[in-house]
């Protein structure tokens, strides 16, 4: 689905720098950012944190039938990544020949996520690549 310009602009900190939140009361890290900690609710104290971008593959799949806007990228690897701070994110794994396994170490990279059309908006954000790759 095409995102609006205000939405894309609003999400720049999180998508460009993996900015999330952490609850000072229970220590749990969240990505994307949350206004309240679902575990502690009003007893929680939320602060912003910047994730290191290092993590491990928790699960993965190869997408052969892509959604609108991803036609030129398919097939591509999609994974749930467990970041070293504990939060998990959904993201693509790029620059790999398919040797992704559960547990593979990965690191975040800054990439184009999708383009609306040749004249339209270019959406940027995070993808991941295998950490042992050079």
């Amino acid at each position: 689905m095409k995102e609006s310009i205000p939405l894309t602009w609003r999400r720049i900190p999180e998508r460009y720098t993996l900015l999330g939140t952490q609850c000072e009361t229970c220590g749990k890290a969240y990505f994307p950012p949350r206004i309240i900690c679902p575990q502690c609710r009003r007893k929680g104290k939320i602060k912003k944190i910047k994730f290191s971008g290092r993590g491990k593959v928790y699960s993965y799949t190869k997408i052969f039938v892509p959604p609108e806007g991803f036609e030129k990228q398919a097939p591509y690897m999609l994974a749930v990544i467990e970041l070293e701070e504990g939060a998990r994110v959904t993201a693509q794994i790029v620059d790999t020949c398919g040797d992704v396994k559960i547990g593979s170490p990965v690191r975040a990279v800054f990439r184009i996520i999708q383009r609306d059309d040749p004249e339209g908006l270019i959406h940027y954000g995070f993808k991941f690549r295998l950490a042992n790759d050079t």
Binding site: S59, T61, I63, A79, I102, G125
Partner: peptide, 22 residues
């Protein structure tokens, strides 16, 4: 989650594939 799954390239079969793989 439109902003944090679908925007990043997930599809519905993709989400269930992640469950299946695990």
């Amino acid at each position: 989650d439109q902003e944090w799954e679908l925007f990043l390239g997930a599809t519905f079969p993709g989400l269930y594939a992640l469950m299946a793989r695990r």
